[in-house]
Each structure stands twice: as structure tokens, then as C-alpha cells.
Nucleic acid binder design. Structure first.
Lengths: 232, 232
DNA sequence: TTATGTGAAAGCGTTCACAGCC
DNA sequence: GGCTGTGAACGCTTTCACATAA
């Protein structure tokens, strides 16, 4: 029983939460450079956001800055990290070891951010037993045991679209409550389970939409017009 | 000179544009199932959105439905596809062929959505000349020629964080105007260039935030409380 | 009768601008 | 004097609810 007070639960906006990891990364980089203190303006620039936005975001977590001075890099880093859950090292399992799943299993960006890939699962018999990045691939049939033994609450789905919902249902049934979905399908989950979708094709399509606009009329920058403002 | 009228440029909200690919995918799936007509309610469910939202989104494109009936699947698919730029087949180049870049080069989800990976580029001499998915890896030094000969306006950056901004600058200098960034860095680009970021570590951190909240208090679903509503 | 298309309302998120504190 | 923290204004997004059309 850690924190009991329920109404104390801070209502941090979802948009802010999505930016906290960006701030963390910027702070890590500053710390590496030996910078001890930073202003909201400079940190905002490093994170690619407006400085007012940064200050408002941080104000949801608490008052960690010093007026007239700025923020202590290490202290702020610790506070944001604690909020995001970096104190903990989260075990993660990956289901589906095609090209993408295999790349994710080897991806170093997870471990550097407080996640540890603890199990790999695939349904194809030829994948099972394969050795990837220090782990052997388990059979989908053994999913129950894999989840139970690792205690993972977070799973990555990188299966073909057709298999994703079934895998998701099984994971949820075994107690997984956070899913990162790379499959090109909309997953339906019960309340209390969080899903984030990464659809690579979709990202390119959004770029293509803007690209098409640009080629329609070279002066168009993203639907709005650049320059030609105040034609003297 | 295709469409000249500048003020005719429809102001489709960014949030809507981001959902169009989702609708396209749902429509493709319906078409495969042989379904010819669909209501906003059913399509919204397949896409995982509210039906009012779907109708409002589609209304920005035009009036493609029939009152009292619904939408013709193939016709709507064509209209959305045209808007997003699926008519065109977009050439894409990938820079950085580590685990992730290699997986992307092999990823089938791009070609099925109107994109063709036309060139692979890496700075490491041991990568250059490697044969991946029907393409040989070019040297970063040859970037100018690669962009010129392929005519790609869209590039994927999957380099280490430290190299990303320099690669980005070179790409932009060579005329690339849309970038999908997998590197864990904030890219700075001139106006008129679109960047979309996919940060896998960040996605997990957002899930971890919510996960932490859940373990603080098992009754908490995402900051809000579930059940216990109307305690009889 | 049924389901779209859309003004109007409500809800969020961002930005401004300045009071408060070092 | 300088920079944080924050109410208030603004703008964008979602949802409602109904007029409109088949």
C-alpha cells in the first residue's frame, strides 16, 4: 500500500504526460554536457516546445524551479523520472518476431529508458527456440507461463494484423494492462487497459498528405501560405 | 500546374488528417469482406472512433454519403485515398540501417499503402553495398546522387541520435521536404518541411506512467475511478 | 423512417502576459 | 533584474443534437 489518498491523484493532462519523456531526454543530454542549471527557455528549445508550455507542464508536477534562476537539471530529471516511472525497471514482453519484432528485441532505446525486454513470444514453430539478443523465443502456447514468470504488465504486439486482437485478448486475460501495438489494427480492450498504437504506414500517409499539398502549389507551406506577407 | 486556386485549399484540421489513414484501412478491410455499403456508426466502430467524429471528419472532404443509407465503401475509399495522396506512389529513402532501419527496409506495410522504398543509405563502410530487400545500401557520401536520381521527397531517418540532425540538414538541403524521424532527437527544420517523430522509448514511457498509477491504487483506472459509481 | 451533414456547445490544450519570488 | 508559476484568453477538437435529405 503505497499512496492511499485517492483524491490526491494529480490530474496531469495527457498531452503533458506525452511530453515528459521528451523533457527527460533533453535533461539527460544536458546532464551529460555537465550543465547543472537551466532556464525554461533553454530547456524548451532543447525539447522543441514553447517555453510557456514547458513551465505549465512542469507546474502540474510541482514547483521544482527557482524564480530568477531556473531549474536544477539533476533534480528536475529525478522528479520527472519518478513521475514517469523511471525509478522502476519495467519488464516488457514482445509478441511477434518478424522483422519489426526482431528489431525491437534488439533495440537499445528501451533499456536506456528503464525497460527490460524479458521475453519474446511467437506462434511460428520455426521461430520458437531462436536466440535473439540474449533471449530464446517462447511459443505462443506458453504465453501464460511467460507472463506469470516475468510478471510483465507491459507488452509489445508486433504480429501480423490478423493475429493482433487475439494475442491482445490473451495478454489482457493474463493480466497485461499496457500494450504497445505495432500491428495495423484497431485493438479493442476493456477499461483499465492502456493501448498505444504505432502505425508506420499511417505516419508516412500523413506526410504524404502534406507533400501532396506542396506539389499542388509550391508556395503552399502546409496549407498556409508563407512569405508574401505584407507585400510592401 | 494542377490546382491553381489557392484560397480553395480546404482547411482540413490536422487531427482529421491523422485519422484518414485509419479510415482507409478500415475501408480496405470492409472491401475485402465484400461489404459495399456502411453506416457512419459501423465504420466508426471499425476505426475505433466516435460516429459523430467520423461524420465531421468526412464532411471536411465533401458529401460522400447518402442520407438514410450510409457510405459506398469503394467510393469513400477512393475519395479518402485521393485526399491522402494514395493515387501517387511515393518514393521513400531510408537513412540509417541498424536494426530498426533494416526492419523498416523489409517492412511490407509501406508498399501496401502507396510507398516504395527506393534507396537505402548508411554511413558505415561495412553497411555500404549490403543487399536488403532488393536494394543495395548506398554510402552517405552519395546522398546527393541518391536523392536526385530517385526524386524522393520523403525520407526516413533511423540513425543514432547524434547523427540525425546532420543527416536531416543534408536531406533538406537536397530537397527532401517530409521526414519520418525514428532517432531519439528533436529535429530542427526550416519552414515548409514536415517532420513526424516516432520514439519507441517514449511510447513505452507513456504506458509506464499509467502503469505506475494503476499499481499505486488498483482501483484507479488511468487517473479516473471505475465502478463504484452509484453505490446503490 | 433512417442515417448523413453540420451549427452550436462543451471540453482540451496552448499561448499570453504578468504577479510573485529569488 | 530575471525567471518561474499561473490565471485568463485564445484556438483547436470533440461531442451533442437536430435539420436535412433519401
Amino acid at each position: 500500500m503505497t499512496r492511499i489518498a485517492p483524491t490526491t491523484t494529480k490530474g496531469i493532462p495527457e498531452a503533458t504526460i506525452a511530453r515528459l519523456p521528451v523533457y527527460l531526454r533533453a535533461l539527460a543530454s544536458l546532464a551529460d554536457q555537465g550543465i547543472a542549471t537551466i532556464s525554461s527557455g533553454a530547456l524548451a528549445e532543447a525539447a522543441g516546445v514553447n517555453s510557456a508550455q514547458l513551465r505549465k507542464d512542469l507546474s502540474y508536477l510541482g514547483s521544482y524551479g527557482t524564480r530568477g534562476v531556473g531549474y536544477n537539471v539533476e533534480y528536475l530529471r529525478f522528479q520527472i523520472g519518478r513521475e514517469v516511472g523511471s525509478a522502476h525497471e519495467w519488464p516488457v514482453i514482445i509478441v511477434g518476431l518478424g522483422n519489426l519484432g526482431t528489431a525491437l528485441a534488439n533495440y537499445s532505446g528501451f533499456s536506456s529508458r528503464g525497460f527490460r525486454v524479458v521475453a519474446l513470444v511467437d506462434s511460428a514453430p520455426e521461430q520458437v527456440g531462436r536466440w535473439i539478443h540474449g533471449l530464446t523465443v517462447s511459443a505462443l502456447d506458453d504465453l501464460e507461463q511467460v507472463v506469470a514468470s516475468t510478471g510483465a504488465a507491459i507488452a509489445v504486439i508486433a504480429t501480423p494484423p490478423g493475429a493482433a486482437q487475439a494475442v491482445c485478448d490473451r495478454l489482457v486475460g493474463l493480466g497485461v494492462t499496457s500494450i504497445l501495438n505495432f500491428a495495423a489494427t484497431v485493438l479493442v480492450v476493456p477499461e483499465g487497459v492502456n493501448v498505444r498504437k504505432v502505425d508506420l504506414g499511417q505516419e508516412l500517409q500523413i506526410l504524404a498528405y502534406h507533400e501532396q499539398r506542396k506539389s499542388d502549389d509550391p508556395r503552399v507551406f502546409d496549407g498556409a501560405y508563407a512569405a508574401e506577407v505584407t507585400p510592401a
